[in-house]
C-alpha cells in the first residue's frame, strides 16, 4: 500500500492534490553528521516514507535559524522538522544543546501565537538510526495532516487599504 502511495507521489504532487486531500508539506533540516545521513540511509534502504517531506542538509542543527522556520511556515510549509545529533554527540562543542534550547523557545512563541508548537519537530538521532528517522517522519506526517492549513491566516493577506475603499 505504501509503495502505491509512493508511486502516486512520484507522479507529481499537483495531480494528487487535485484528486484527493492535499498532502501536507514538511520541511526537514537535517544536520550532515547524523540526521542527514540517517535520512539518506532511510531512502537508500527503501523504507516506507511519506512523500510530503523535503530535506535540506545543514552543517549543524544549531545553524538552523529560528527565522528560517518562521519563513518556511509563512511560505506555505505546514510543518518543520529539525534533526540533529544526540544530545552529547554534537561535533561542534555541544552546539545542539543551544539549538534545542532555542528551538524550544520557538515552540513557546508558536504556541502563543496559536500556530502550535507541535508544527516544529525536534529530533535527535545518530547516523545509523534510519529506522528512527522513518518513524519520526511518518508520525509527523500523520500529525500535520490532521492540523488545519495555515493558509487563511498567513501571507501578506488582503490589502487593508483596498478593503477600506470598498
Amino acid at each position: 500500500m505504501n509503495a502505491e502511495k509512493n508511486k502516486q507521489g512520484l507522479q507529481g504532487g499537483e495531480k494528487k492534490g487535485k484528486a484527493g486531500a492535499p498532502s501536507p508539506k514538511i520541511l526537514v533540516f537535517a544536520c550532515r553528521w547524523c540526521g542527514g545521513i540517517g535520512a539518506g540511509r532511510a531512502g537508500w534502504k527503501r523504507m516506507d516514507l511519506p512523500v510530503s517531506f523535503r530535506v535540506i542538509p545543514v552543517e549543524c542543527a544549531a545553524l538552523v535559524e529560528p527565522d528560517a522556520i518562521f519563513r518556511a511556515l509563512a511560505s506555505g510549509i505546514d510543518g518543520v522538522a529539525v534533526l540533529g545529533c544526540h544530545i552529547g554527540g554534537c561535533r561542534y562543542n555541544e552546539a545542539n544543546h543551544a539549538a534545542l534550547k532555542r528551538l524550544e523557545l520557538v515552540k513557546v512563541l508558536l504556541d502563543t501565537a496559536g500556530i502550535g508548537g507541535r508544527r516544529l519537530l525536534l529530533a535527535f538521532g545518530t547516523a545509523h538510526e534510519d529506522h528512527q528517522f522513518a518513524e519520526v517522519i511518518r508520525n509527523f506526517h500523520e500529525f500535520i495532516g490532521k492540523e488545519p492549513s495555515l493558509k487563511p491566516w498567513l501571507g501578506a493577506g488582503e490589502d487593508i487599504f483596498l478593503r477600506r475603499e470598498e
Partner: peptide, 18 residues
C-alpha cells in the same frame, strides 16, 4: 506589502527579543 506578514515580521521580531 502591507500589512506585514504575521509570521515573518511579528514573530521574527518577537523571537529576536525572546
Amino acid at each position: 506589502s502591507i500589512p506585514a506578514e504575521m509570521l515573518v515580521f511579528h514573530l521574527i521580531r518577537a523571537f529576536h527579543l525572546s
